[in-house]
Design a binder for these strands. Structure first.
Length: 269
DNA sequence: GCGACAG
DNA sequence: ATCTTGTCGC
């Protein structure tokens, strides 16, 4: 798939002020409400029996009743090269995977991640033949100083529903401390605060989601930070991550993209 | 000036 | 993100 908004493609040569301005434009186009062509409950796991015998039905390539295609995207780095990998799953099974390599042109700057990694990500999506129904992006979406994190930037640019999946909190205030140990399934709303300069304080911009936790003892797992990227609400974003998690902290599409990016590193010189 | 900050 | 040994727990 290719950018539907060429003017939003991240340009690393912009000044920091120009990058921030572009993010504000993107945030205005972003929709943090559900606009999906499927229900999160329709996301099957590996081993789940199809609800209908697909083999006896004449299905078109994009039948809306087909189980959704869920993509995960992640990056690995080798010197000044970024390797982006996209893995697409349906019914919990891999149906396509692609990767692309691009030189990184700027360092990591909190708040401007998409200008470092976005180019490689879009290059990988350009190689993709299938059309995912939703994309899980490694990083923040609406949980961002200007509500335009990596997941939002990618989602809006490609006009595809997108969810941000991060391992730590960039900004915003959790309704409860994230330093405690919570059981699996726990969702803690993240509210906008003064650091989120584009929306009213108190707006729920995402959740901390405990996708996995140890049963008892003295060791614990930190929650995932999930936020809407584009065309999904905060609660549906969490639903989607929960539906694609399968015994690990990270949802399957993200895990597989992560390891595929690592694999693809060996291909780079 | 100080503190905080996805990957 | 990346560099890396040991160590904890089921």
């Amino acid at each position: 798939m290719h950018p539907i908004h060429p003017d939003f493609v991240p340009d690393p040569s912009l000044s920091q002020a120009e990058m921030e301005e572009l993010q504000r434009d993107i945030a205005e186009v972003a929709r943090f409400e559900d606009d999906l062509g499927f229900s999160p409950q329709g996301i099957a796991r590996p081993g789940d029996a199809p609800g209908v015998d697909q083999t006896t039905l004449s299905t078109s390539d994009d039948d809306p009743t087909d189980p959704p295609l869920v993509a995960g995207v992640d990056q690995a780095f080798v010197d000044d090269k970024a390797v982006s990998a996209v893995v697409v799953l349906q019914n919990g099974e891999v149906v396509e995977r692609v990767s692309a390599v691009k030189r990184t042109e700027i360092p990591y700057i909190p708040g401007l991640l998409s200008f470092r990694e976005g180019g490689a990500i879009l290059a990988a999506f350009a190689e993709l033949e299938t059309d995912p129904d939703v994309v899980l992006v490694d990083g923040s979406g609406r949980i961002h100083f200007r509500e335009a994190g990596l997941a939002t930037h990618i989602g809006v640019t490609l006009d595809v529903p997108a969810v941000g999946v991060a391992k730590s909190l960039l900004c915003g205030t959790p309704e409860r401390s994230l330093d405690e140990t919570y059981p699996e399934g726990t969702r803690i709303p993240i509210a906008a605060d003064d650091s989120v300069e584009t929306c009213p304080d108190g707006t729920v911009i995402g959740h901390a989601l405990q996708t996995r936790q140890y049963d008892s003892p003295n060791r614990y797992i930190n929650p995932l930070i999930v936020s809407p990227g584009h065309r999904v609400s905060a609660s549906t974003a969490a639903d989607i991550v929960e539906a694609t998690a399968d015994g690990y902290k990270l949802p399957e599409p993200t895990r597989l993209a992560d390891s595929y990016a690592d694999e693809a590193k060996a291909t780079v010189e």
